[in-house]
Computed example of a mutant assay.
Amino acid sequence: MEWRDEGIILGTRKHGESSAILEVMTRARGRHLGMVKGGRSRKMQPLLQPGNRVDLVWRARLDEHLGFFQVEPIELHAARLFDSACAVFGLQTLATHLRLLPERDPHPHLYETLGVLLQHLEEPEVAGELVVRFELMVLEELGFGLDLSQCAATGQVEDLTYVSPKSGRAVSREAGAPWADRMLALPSFLLRGSGLRADPEALEEAYRLTAFFFERHVYQPRGIGAPEARVGFLGALRRHYANRP
């Protein structure tokens, strides 16, 4: 078995004396693992860093085997990203979210979005918006997508202010008013076509929104906790806004 694809490195772990197990998000084959012979060498270590975009050739005797990767560079983002706490924690958060998906299950839209994020992870005000949109995409791919297009009660598309914690659907200000204390806030910048940017308060609301549905639909059923990297990423965002002139 053999295939060729491009991928973005999510992580590595040691294997034996000199090899490494490489984890990548590929364009056509989703999240994929493979062994890299000599992956712990001085020559290979700078290449096999999270965030780097690489050309991959995978070979194995059978499709279900771990297989071996041959890796060549395309874009080396890692050195730039490592200088920013926001970027480091952001990339770790994205990788953790991608590990919620089945291995070798294609998700081309997530791959393309991950590529865009790599260009902006060290820019906190851009990364804050992009990562929470990525979280919404992951929920969608897992089958728990939110419907923020119209009010669940009235069908109207204007003045959408809340999200129902039961249905994951948007609710207008008027329709949700009687149950406002039970609703989740819907930041306006998340609405399609709004053209709005997020301020610190809106970002906090957005991440509370996605965290609620990850906890309900993903973490609790699987018996796992929220990723620590996400806590670090949100902390880096808060520090940025606190220190902004």
Rank of each mutant, 00 (worst) to 15 (best):
M25D: 01
M25L: 08
T26V: 10
R27P: 03
A28N: 14
L33C: 00
L33V: 00
G34N: 00
V36M: 09
V36L: 07
V36H: 06
G38I: 12
R40Y: 01
R40L: 10
S41L: 09
S41W: 00
R42Y: 09
K43C: 02
K43G: 04
M44S: 11
Q45E: 10
P46N: 12
L47T: 06
L48R: 10
N52A: 09
V54L: 03
D55Q: 09
D55I: 01
D55F: 11
D55S: 13
L62D: 06
L62M: 12
L62V: 13
D63I: 01
E64M: 13
E64I: 11
E64W: 15
G67S: 10
G67H: 02
G67E: 08
F68D: 07
F69V: 12
V71H: 01
P73S: 10
I74S: 04
H77Q: 09
A79S: 13
A79F: 15
R80K: 11
L81P: 02
L81M: 12
F82D: 15
D83Q: 13
S84R: 01
C86A: 13
A87W: 15
V88T: 14
F89V: 02
L91F: 03
Q92M: 14
L94N: 10
T96L: 13
R99Q: 07
R99L: 08
L100D: 02
L101R: 05
P102S: 11
P102L: 12
E103A: 13
D105R: 05
P106D: 09
P106E: 08
P108Q: 05
H109A: 07
H109G: 04
L110C: 07
L110K: 05
L114Y: 13
G115V: 13
G115P: 01
L118S: 02
L118Y: 00
H120C: 06
H120P: 12
L121K: 07
L121P: 11
E122H: 13
E123H: 03
E123M: 07
E125W: 00
V126K: 12
A127F: 02
A127S: 15
A127R: 05
